[in-house]
Simulated assay, not measured.
Amino acid sequence: MHHQLLPITAPLGRYIANASYFRQTVGDFCAFKLVPRIFSTLFFVIEKKQSLEMCYGGTNHKFQSNSIYAFGVGNLPAAFHVTSEIEVILVQMHPGISCLFHNDQAHIFTNQQFDISDIDQNTEHLNEKLSYADSLALKWQLIQEYLIKKFSVNFPQKYGTVAKAIDILRKNSGHFPIKRLSEQVFTSHRNLNYLFMEYVGFSPKKYADIIRFNSFVNLYNQNPEILSDVAFQYGYHDLSHLNKDFMRYIGTSPSDYFENFHSDVNNWCELDHLKP
C-alpha cells in the first residue's frame, strides 16, 4: 500500500487536520484495524477494481467506485480490508468541522458512514471530474476547490467554546478533569456537554477517553516499552482497564493489536496527528 501525505492549501488549514492519498496495486492485500476516530472524514474513492470493504461495529460496508463517503467521529471497533487495486483520498477534518459540511448536528453522524456522491450538484460534478482527472495533483486540486466552496461559511460563535476545550484535551492527551475543563472555558458542565454533542458527537468525557486511548496507542507504537509503565502515564492504573478499552474500541487485546497490525499505514495516518 502506497501512502502519501497531501499538502493543504492555506484557506483550508483551519478546517482540515490531514489529507492522505492511498494507492494499492494489483495482487496486493492490506488489512488493518482503526483506533477510535476523533476526526470526521471524507473518503474519496477514485478507483476500485474489486473489493474495498470496511467492518464497522459488526456491520460490513462495501465502497463503490467513483464515490464520496462521509464518516462521523467513531468509537466502534472498525477495520479495513483491501484486496484489490484501489486509489483513494482521505480528508480528515478538525473536530466540529462536520457541522459546516453537513449543516446538521454532529451526533447524527457519530459512528455512521454515508455515501454523499450525489447530495448536491457540486458533489456530482466533482465526482465526474475526479474520474477523468489524469494526475494526483489535479485530483487533489479539484477536491480542495470543492471544499473551499463548502467551507465558505462562518463558525457559530458558540463553537469557540468547544474549540478551546478540544485544544486543552489534545494538549493533555485527554487526561484532564472534565469539571475543570468547564471552568477553563467559562461555561457550565451541562452546557459544555450539550455543545460537544452538537459539534463533536460525543460528551466531553467520552471524547477525552478516546483521545487518551489514541494517545497511548500512538506512544506505545513509537516506543514499545513495558506496557504497564506506558499505560500508567495515560491514567490506566491497571492493565484490566486498558484491556477493556482495547476490546471496547478495537475488538482485540493490546498484544494482538500491536503484534498483528503494526505497519506504516496502520490507522491510515490518524495517529500522526496525536503526537505530542
Score class of each variant (00 low, 15 high):
H3C: 05
Q4P: 02
P7R: 15
P11T: 01
A17V: 02
A17Q: 08
F22N: 04
G27N: 04
C30Y: 15
F32V: 00
T41I: 01
L42R: 04
F44V: 03
V45I: 12
K48W: 02
K48F: 03
K49W: 01
S51A: 13
L52M: 11
L52A: 13
E53I: 11
Y56E: 09
G57A: 04
G58C: 06
H61E: 07
F63Q: 02
Q64M: 08
S67G: 01
Y69G: 11
Y69R: 15
A79I: 04
I89M: 13
Q92H: 11
Q92M: 10
G96H: 12
H102G: 07
Q105H: 10
A106S: 02
H107F: 11
N111E: 03
S117H: 09
D120L: 07
Q121S: 12
T123H: 02
T123I: 00
H125P: 00
L130S: 12
A133L: 00
A133M: 00
A137Y: 03
K139A: 00
I143R: 01
A163V: 06
A165S: 12
S173H: 15
S173F: 13
P177A: 02
I178W: 05
S182G: 10
E183C: 04
V185K: 02
S188Y: 00
N191S: 14
M197N: 14
M197V: 08
E198V: 08
I211R: 01
I211P: 00
F213N: 03
S215P: 05
S215R: 08
V217S: 03
A231E: 08
H237Q: 09
L239M: 14
S240F: 06
G251S: 05
S253W: 03
D256K: 15
H262G: 05
H262E: 06
N267C: 00
D272S: 10
